[in-house]
Design a protein around this nucleic acid. Structure first.
Length: 570
RNA sequence: CGGGACAUGGCGCAGUUUGGUAGCGCACCUGCCUUGGGAGCAGGUGGUCGCAGGUUCAAAUCCUGUUGUCCCGACCA
């Protein structure tokens, strides 16, 4: 490819709306352009990288027995109604009607589609296991699209679905995918961690998120350096630490005027924050009030709360009215003496004694609260419902946990029979019995992977592509393309590199050297080959390694070989 | 949807307070010149100032409405 024919509009400045380095650089380097909020065009350079990532994914999926297919983006409402998700998915699903008024959705994911496809075609255990995947646009009408490709409304995703006879088979498929994902992200040159994750709305059994480590990431993960435990902050389980017994004092109501936050209460009553119990009020779709109680210095984990309340699919912050109706007061909520609510107590709260909690009336708190004595244990749910914090003991080995931020680029799930049951997808097993498929699903955000790669590989001058996903591996730059000797020399090297199988760009633009160098650094080609009067005179070429900034000179005769060598380590 | 900000040429911005009919840098086009780190000179193209309505002799500027965008919270690849 020649730069004079390449559509790669680079910018000196980034649009004011771009916040993240990766977003700015993708814009400036001419990889993407925005069409509307959360909707982007991939320009040739960006698409080259996307295609390279997709190719790596294909190779790794195929290596595990995956088969690529392609399903429709436009999906009929019926299959979503059948699985029950037409109602559950909510506003995030882009819906449309055809000319006859029939309802459709733009696929946010394809469990329904693939399951209905399979149930009609796969009848025998002999056809199993099956792993089918596609790489395709997905549509999610995000509440807040942001950070460029990190969270967009239309995005390219690889989604693979596995179908197995039984749970053992499903777990084998899961392990294969886990391994394939590790290989994909390693090949893309990313530093990542596979972390235990919550299954979220998709439901099912166990799950891992593949998280690229980056301070700008939206997800937070907890990990242990002593063992190999790592989990998303939503998922991370907490070990229960038993407290030492103390002498129990009698429960007493005290006046706490205007102390509606934990901070005010603790200062007013002069108690350490660990001796307070705070409440967070949620409601679900059925408008049931759910009160979650944790220690004052802890944070409530909404997902954990949701998971332990039967029938709750979504949680919202509770209406003040709902709290009043249940006989309590926001700011002074208490598990003592309230029955019109679902009470969820963090396990660590049950270990407390002589603590401070609300009194369900304005300007009053209880002191000397001892949950085991004062709470009616039959009416409450006790569970691990708090957010992990730095220093909490590792659930596996007990060592203090550390936390870091990351970008979730892929996730693997076991679904079990969730969809196959709902959609009646069955097969005949060896023993002649009708059985329901055990499924798994596995997604990779391709654009997000590209963005994450930039987030992890950049400097003040621009992107530093890992070789495997660089839009071009090498750029050949004649310093002055108007000089025929230089251009001819550069073209020769370009041809030889092409012949050697290198993905190479010839920057034959008649721009000044500075302009071309700036563009090279901005776009981030791993290697630059410079041809100039200086190098011509010496009969050699100059190589610049983008990542290290190192310059080196090689004799013309050996330069192709040297470039091939250098590329191996980039 | 709640809170905050913004909307002026492809990009970045000034002008709005105090109405007088749009400007700067970059990019783009032409010519000269220059060619190892976003050069210089000269000339040029492009915007009815998000949209709609109102006030006024006159609106980018004031008023009302509306749409879009970005940032902070609930979603997820």
């Amino acid at each position: 490819m020649r730069a004079t024919q390449l559509y790669a509009p680079t910018l000196r400045e980034s649009p004011a709306e771009a916040e993240l380095v990766s977003h700015k650089l993708m814009y400036r380097a001419g990889l993407i352009r925005k069409a509307a909020g959360g909707l982007y065009s991939y320009l040739p350079l960006g698409w080259r990288t996307m295609k390279k990532i997709m190719q790596i994914i294909r190779e790794e999926m195929d290596a595990k027995g995956g088969q690529e297919l392609m399903m429709p983006i436009v999906q009929p409402a019926e299959m979503w109604q059948e699985s029950g998700r037409w109602a559950v998915y909510g506003d995030e699903m882009m819906r449309l009607k055809d000319r006859h008024g029939r309802a459709f959705a733009l696929g946010p994911t394809h469990e329904e589609m693939i399951t209905t496809l399979i149930r009609d075609e796969v009848r025998s255990y002999k056809q199993l296991p099956l792993m089918l995947y596609q790489i395709q646009n997905k549509y999610r009408d995000e509440i807040r699209p942001r950070f460029g490709l990190m969270r967009s409304r239309e995005f390219v995703m690889k989604d693979l679905y596995s179908f197995d006879r039984d749970v053992d088979g499903m777990n084998i498929s899961y392990d294969k995918m886990y391994d394939a994902y590790s290989k994909v992200f390693t090949r893309c040159g990313l530093k990542f961690r596979a972390v235990e994750a919550d299954n979220g709305a998709i439901g099912g059994g166990h799950s891992h998120e593949f998280t690229v480590l980056a301070p700008s990431g939206e997800s937070s993960i907890a990990y242990c350096e002593a063992c190999n435990f790592a989990a998303s902050d939503e998922k991370a389980e907490l070990k229960l630490i038993h407290a030492d017994a103390e002498e129990l004092l009698p429960l007493k109501k005290v006046s706490t005027p205007a102390c509606h936050t934990i901070e005010l209460v603790k200062n007013f009553l002069r108690v350490p924050i660990e001796k307070t119990i705070k409440a967070v009020a949620f409601m679900d779709d059925a408008e049931r009030l759910i009160l979650a109680f944790v220690r004052g210095d802890h944070e409530v984990n909404e997902i954990k709360v949701m998971n332990c309340v039967e029938g709750a699919n979504h949680l919202y912050m509770a209406d003040e009215k709902l709290i009043t109706a249940a006989g309590s007061v926001a700011g002074f909520m208490s598990p003592i003496g309230i029955d019109k609510a679902i009470i969820v107590i963090d396990q660590s709260v049950m270990e407390m004694s002589n603590a401070v909690a609300g009194a369900n009336e304005i300007d009053a708190h209880f002191v000397n609260v001892t949950p085991k004595r004062d709470f009616d244990a039959k009416k409450i749910i006790v569970a691990d419902i708090r957010m992990v914090q730095v220093g909490d003991p590792c659930p596996h080995c007990g060592a203090p946990l550390k936390m870091t931020r990351g970008i979730e680029v892929g996730q693997v799930f076991t679904l079990g029979k969730k969809y196959s049951e709902a959609l009646h997808a069955t097969f005949l097993d060896e023993d002649g019995a009708t059985k329901t498929f055990e499924m798994g699903c596995y997604g990779i955000g391709v654009g997000r992977t590209m963005a994450a790669a930039i987030e992890q590989n950049n400097d003040a001058d621009g992107i530093i592509w890992p070789r495997a996903i660089a839009p071009f591996e090498v750029v050949v730059v004649p310093v002055n393309a108007k000089d025929d000797t230089q251009l001819a020399f550069a073209e020769k090297i370009y041809d030889e590199l092409l012949a050697a199988g290198v993905d190479v760009l010839l920057d034959d633009r008649k721009e000044r050297a500075g302009v071309k160098f700036k563009d090279c650094d901005l776009i981030g080609y791993p290697l630059r080959v410079t041809v100039s009067p200086k190098t011509l005179a010496g009969g050699n070429v100059e190589i610049k390694i983008r990542r290290s900034g190192e310059f080196m000179n090689f004799a013309r005769s050996e330069c192709v070989e040297k470039i091939l060598d250098l590329l191996k380590n980039l």
